[in-house]
Amino acid sequence: MAAFKININGKTETVDVDPQTPLLWVLRDHLKLVGTKYGCGIAQCGACTVHLNGSAVRSCQLPISAVQENQVTTIEGLSENGDHPVQQAWLEVDVPQCGYCQAGQIMTASALLKENPNPNDEDIETAMNGNICRCGTYTRIKAAIKTAASKTQSA
């Protein structure tokens, strides 16, 4: 066990855990930030996606000891009132079915748009291919990303 100071959603949190503990379980078990989901534990499904300095990473494969000074953003911290353009687009298109994977999808999508504000279909497919949606909302996710892109462009 060791104490780690990490920056999550603009706040500094201290946790006393095994250094190998994946960020995912620190978020869920220790900080009760349960929006980040467990899906596979081996970085194959994307349900656990968070931002590390704005880039999408799989928190199930990121040991807490590796987080260090980097800024972690989870779905809870993506926007203050749930009004990030990607979240708004998700509501507008009414994307979710079961909804379990959607936080991860949103985190990957928002990181994509930050890097590439106007992605084409292929860009979207490439960026999103690591996020599984078992319910099959892929076409809606693509539509929502385009909606969010147009919102950001016109804003």
Binding site: V34, T36, Y38
Partner: peptide
């Protein structure tokens, strides 16, 4: 008439909703 998913806001903001979120 089409009505939006009543849990959508909670889903896209990561609120506890699922069994695994029980603590």
């Amino acid at each position: 008439t089409s009505r939006k998913n009543v849990d959508a806001k909670k889903i896209v903001t990561g609120k506890p909703l699922y069994g695994l979120d029980t603590y």
